[in-house]
């Protein structure tokens, strides 16, 4: 019967984990005075739904959300497509130097981005691509990131080779095997890579900060930073704007949750 205290403790911890969310929502729904009321009230006296509209229209959030969606969706597609293609090459074929190259893939996970940041910036500057989305999107189409390659490869290795071979005896090409046999069987890992990729790019701050200059091209993350500069003292609006940034990732997570948790667990087993 030691379960009961444990359960109480877990509930307590969940409350601690959730309090910052509740506090943010509560602040976002207060009027200017009540934000600074002491002691703080958790439930606002009159709920100010209008704060969301105020925050949304004070700066061009509609534009920023659309911009971010374009970048994020493009990158997610790029990472899932090329990541699984590369994982296919690493998991199903034997070629000279394969294991060395895969070792390099893993090693790049440990490489701090700062080491390549400046020359990569110079390349895009030479190509006159500063203040465009190319530097943010195009790299996602070159293999989709080391961790994703690793994750998908692990999953492909768990799919029996016989399936590929049967399809190839029927005359399927390699690309067809990848597209019609492996990908449909890999829903959990693809969902994981997709969600992680979406969240990662939706969240990205450093990239847009370096590459985007015109406010109309901003993403939500640097737009929010601009909001902080202009309306930082209006805490309720700032929290409302932050929630705009948070909400899509949480919604996506709830839709993909079942697959997603399984995918992450598989990645952990890979770490063993």
């Amino acid at each position: 019967m030691k379960k009961a205290p444990l359960l109480v403790f877990l509930i307590l911890l969940s409350v601690v984990a959730l309090v910052p969310f509740v506090w943010t929502v509560s602040t976002a729904l207060k009027d200017d005075q009540e934000v600074f009321a002491f002691p703080p009230r958790w439930i606002p006296e009159t709920i100010q739904w209008g704060n969301f509209q105020k925050a949304w229209t004070a700066l061009p959030f509609t534009q920023w959300v659309l911009n971010t969606l374009v970048i994020t969706i493009a990158c997610t597609i790029g990472q899932m497509l090329t990541g699984s293609l590369v994982a296919y090459g690493f998991s199903r074929f034997k070629f000279k130097g394969r294991d060395t190259l895969f070792g390099i893939v893993i090693a790049t996970m440990m490489l701090p981005g700062q080491v390549t940041m400046i020359p990569v910036f110079m390349i895009w500057r030479e190509l006159r691509a500063i203040d465009t989305y190319w530097p943010l999107i195009l790299p996602a189409f070159f293999g989709g990131g080391a961790f994703n390659i690793f994750l998908i490869r692990q999953f492909f290795l768990s799919i029996p080779n016989e399936l590929d071979e049967a399809a190839m005896i029927d005359g399927a090409s390699y690309l067809r095997v990848w597209w019609q046999i492996l990908l449909p069987l890999s829903a959990p890992v693809l969902a994981t890579v997709g969600v992680l990729s979406f969240i990662g790019h939706w969240d990205d701050f450093n990239g847009p900060l370096i590459y985007l200059n015109s406010p109309e091209k901003y993403t939500v993350s640097i737009g929010l930073r601009m909001f902080q500069d202009s309306y930082g003292s209006e805490t309720n609006l700032l929290m409302a704007a932050s929630l705009i940034h948070i909400l899509p990732t949480i919604v996506l997570f709830f839709f993909a949750q079942r697959y997603f948790m399984r995918g992450i667990q598989l990645s952990g087993l890979g770490g063993r």
Partner: peptide, 20 residues
């Protein structure tokens, strides 16, 4: 296999090894 890993290899040379 080598053909399929090319996207990564090109990206690695272009955005990682070269810049390093």
């Amino acid at each position: 296999g080598f053909v399929f890993i090319l996207p990564w290899l090109i990206g690695f040379l272009l955005f990682t090894a070269g810049p390093m």
